[in-house]
Simulated scan of single mutants.
Amino acid sequence: MTAGIAEGRGPMTAGVASLGWAAGDVLVLTRRHLLQVLREPQALFWTMVQPITNVLLFVYVIGGIVALPDGGSYRDYLMAGVFTQTVVFSAASTAIGLAEDLQRGVVDRFRVLPVARSAVLLGRTVADLVRNTALLAVMMGIALLVGWRAPNGIGGVLAGAALIEFFAYAVGWLGVMIGLSVPNAQTATAAGLTWVFPLMFVSSSYVPLASLPGWLQPVAEWNPLTAVVSGARELFGTQAGVAGLGHPSIPLAHPAVTAVAWAVAVIAVSVPAAGRKYARLSRS
């Protein structure tokens, strides 16, 4: 794969790499990461099992004891949260994969090849975006089998999926920062997952905001995952469970717009920071 990157080129630096060559580098490295996924069927299998188990657990075990304020279907309410959780967890996979490449010296090989510097990080994040898209499609298929419905039709489903994927791509850059900052894959696993759980459970992913303690509701309303999940529900047309707070919420007045703003903010902070970390590695 590395030979394929260098084939047919003369020496060049990342700073003078043409846009076409840089795009080619991104495609080659994206392909490399996707082939890694396909060559590890066991890891791919267990990646699929965990979210499917979550769907079955929440629908058939917990779903019977959760009552929505407006009496809507908890099954429809739940799915946007499960979809979001599934792809947001991929940030940990991004961190682990990058940390493993650093540990094995793979990134060192890329640094000495005539490869656009940005392609090493972009290739990983684009590959994760492709993987998340396939995973989300499978998850939606499972959701349909257990009774989830999107009243807004295929257009609403695609719009909601795009919103979730865009936020997941932004969070993936946080995974890049983590992967470049930790000494090994084990630390990346812990660092990549620790921050996700509080965000997921202090949000509207699994329970209506009105069911949270009063002091915690404003925190949950400003939680970016609440905006993503609520925006996806709005686009899907599954608005059950949004009633009960009794006052308009600034971040939830237009949740899809708020979710996009959060994603843009995360990218604006994490992409330059990840670039600086990688540049420091290249100079070391």
Rank of each mutant, 00 (worst) to 15 (best):
V55A: 08
P41D: 09
A161I: 01
Y169R: 10
A170L: 06
T53A: 15
L122K: 01
L136G: 01
K277E: 03
A227E: 06
L44R: 08
E234Q: 15
G8R: 12
L145Q: 12
A253G: 15
L35M: 15
G20I: 00
V260D: 07
V229L: 04
I164T: 07
I62N: 07
W21S: 13
L199K: 08
A162S: 14
R111G: 10
I164R: 09
R109E: 08
A99R: 09
G72L: 02
I154S: 13
K277S: 12
T226L: 07
T194Q: 13
N54W: 15
W21G: 10
A243Q: 14
S90W: 06
V61F: 07
V112K: 03
T189R: 14
Y60G: 03
G105M: 06
V120L: 12
G147S: 07
R39N: 15
V257E: 09
Y206T: 02
I142G: 09
G97L: 03
I267T: 05
N184D: 11
L56F: 15
F166H: 09
L129Y: 11
N223I: 00
F110V: 00
L199N: 06
T84A: 14
V182S: 03
T94D: 10
A162G: 15
L225I: 13
G175C: 06
V229F: 07
R109S: 02
A17T: 10
N223D: 05
E221W: 01
F236W: 12
I267C: 11
P183K: 03
F58G: 09
L38H: 13
Q186P: 07
S230C: 07
A23K: 04
V157M: 14
G71W: 04
A243V: 01
F197N: 09
I5P: 04
F58T: 04
N152V: 00
A43Y: 15
D70K: 10
A92S: 15
I62D: 03
F110Y: 14
L281P: 03
M200N: 09
R131H: 10
S282H: 12
A220T: 05
T53N: 11
S73R: 10
V229Q: 06
G156R: 14
G72K: 04
D108P: 00
V26L: 00
D128G: 06
I52S: 15
P213W: 00
D101H: 08
L29P: 03
R124M: 08
M200H: 12
D76G: 09
R111D: 12
V257S: 11
V37M: 11
A150D: 05
R149V: 02
V130H: 05
L180R: 06
E7D: 11
A268S: 13
V202R: 11
D76A: 03
V59A: 03
V182R: 02
R32C: 08
P218W: 00
G246M: 08
S284N: 10
L35R: 15
Y206G: 07
V82T: 06
S230T: 13
A23R: 14
V28D: 12
S249K: 07
S282V: 09
G192I: 03
A80R: 08
D108I: 00
F236P: 11
G156N: 13
V257H: 11
M48K: 10
L56D: 03
T2N: 13
P69W: 01
F89N: 10
K277F: 05
A92K: 13
P69R: 05
G241C: 05
G147Q: 12
V228Y: 14
P248D: 02
G237R: 05
L158M: 05
V87L: 11
L129I: 02
W262I: 00
